[in-house]
Amino acid sequence: MWFYLPGGVIYFVLFIIPTLVSFYFAFTRWTLFESFFVGFENFVMFFEEPGLIGSLWNTLIYGFVTSAAKVVLGMALAVVLSAPIIARGYLRSVTFFPVLLSSVGVGLTFQILLDPFNGLVNKVISGITGSDGPGWLTNPDLALLSVAGIDVWKGLGLATLIYIAGIAAIPNEYFEAARVDGATSWQVFRSIILPLSFPATSTVILLSLIGGLRSFDLIWTTTQGGPGFASDVIASVIYKQYQAGFYGLSTAGNVILFIVVTAIIYPLSRWMNSKETDL
């Protein structure tokens, strides 16, 4: 138990205490030097925000879309990169490279690449089709999904790495037995890789979903929640309140976000853990 103590102290100081303190300050109107207890006033005001329902819906869409895409694409890439192909190590490195990049740097770069008038992406589309490309980050119908696509590009390498580790952990005897029985590649994937890599799938889903529901930096650097409130998520609404000096209100928003993420992740995690024990 003594070996757990250093990590436990760090976890208590950096997570438990700030979480409890934030719950207290969510019920106050505070500044750096003073605070006044206001009860549930901050929560009432936060739920009266005109874009809150839309931002909550956007948060759920963003979280589930990015998570699902990383699961599907990560699994597909992992299967390919686990096969004996040429330059496999190099391709694995290239796939993982975007994970190492700063989210702010990625957001600013794609903001330039996806510019509707001078961006490289629309110039290529215009050169191929002869028509103007869409406003990826300026069209209210495309902005949120465009940022989600950038998020998938950046985080796909980590999902692929987790899946590669999961596939590598499958005993080779299963694949040998499948080859002896004359199983096709699809049958091997469906009957061996897919079910036996479920722990990796569980990890990718939980990490991607938590990251998607809490996402802020990539959205803020690309669209700042715009155009209008089209790509606003709960985290960006919280930041806007903080910018305006409503610290108690933004703290209440953080508590709401914590509750939303916990309400989704905790039962999902319990269900996935029960499925893993059944394997």
Rank of each mutant, 00 (worst) to 15 (best):
L114M: 13
D141L: 15
I162S: 01
V124C: 09
F175L: 12
L158D: 00
V180G: 12
V147A: 05
N139G: 05
L161K: 00
A178E: 10
V99M: 02
P134D: 08
V121Y: 08
S103E: 13
K123A: 12
S102P: 01
D141C: 10
S103K: 07
Y174R: 06
Y174G: 04
V99G: 00
F175C: 07
R179H: 12
G130H: 09
L101Q: 01
T138L: 07
D181M: 09
N122T: 09
V104T: 12
G107N: 03
T138G: 10
A159P: 02
G182K: 07
K123E: 13
L145F: 15
R179F: 12
W153P: 01
N172A: 15
N139P: 02
K154R: 15
V99R: 00
S102V: 02
G135M: 08
L114Y: 10
W136F: 15
L108I: 11
G182S: 07
L142P: 00
G130Y: 08
D141M: 13
W153N: 01
Y174W: 13
A177E: 12
F110P: 00
L145E: 04
Q111Y: 10
V106C: 06
P116N: 09
V104W: 00
V121Q: 07
P116R: 11
G127K: 14
A168H: 08
D181H: 04
P140S: 09
V152Q: 02
V104D: 01
Y163L: 01
E176R: 14
W136H: 03
A177V: 15
A143N: 08
L145G: 06
V106N: 04
P98R: 02
L142V: 05
I162T: 11
V147L: 08
G119M: 11
I128F: 13
L114G: 04
Q111R: 15
L120H: 01
L158I: 12
P134A: 10
S102Y: 03
T109L: 15
S126D: 13
F117A: 13
D141E: 14
G127S: 15
G107P: 03
A165H: 03
L142W: 10
K154Y: 06
K154P: 07
A143M: 07
F110C: 03
V180M: 14
A165M: 06
V124M: 12
K154C: 03
T109C: 08
P98G: 03
S131I: 15
Y163T: 04
